[in-house]
Amino acid sequence: MAKLPVQFRLNGSDRATFVDPASNLLDTLRRGLGDFGPKYGCGQGTCGVCTVLVDGEPQLACLTLAVSCEGRQIETTSGMADGPNLHPLQGAFMDHFAAQCGFCTPGMLTAARALLAKNPQPSRDEVVEAISGNICRCTGYEPIIAAILAAANAPGARRA
């Protein structure tokens, strides 16, 4: 089948590539554009590791058609740090030991980033809700919740 051109802004840079009409955004980012921030987990929208921001909204890249991203702003964890300066969420994840194997981390960071952009002072329940589509096998979630609350400078950042 003929490939289609698609252009979007990826982490602030204009990118263009050719994709199959049925290509998903995850495959296009990883294999087409070499952005390995979003991970391939389940491929069916149940694990959250491929979460990216499309025009600021968290979306599962494995379920998003690449051609539907024409002209949009895509943000991944690859663009979170400002040179050597980590994003506050990345720093908080380190400080709170919120990553072990690290496979869920890009999805968690992206879900948290979308939350804090809309709601800079979320409650614990709002944080839980925001990451409820992301599966973590190692941490038991508590350090991740604590890190997001700390990044938001919210009271009660760390539960006993």
């Binding site: 030991f97 072990q100 096998r137 190692c138 941490t139 038991g140 508590e142 350090p143």
Partner: peptide, 9 residues
Amino acid sequence: QQLVGGAWM
């Protein structure tokens, strides 16, 4: 970190 994550498991 190990103990908290492992308890979840």
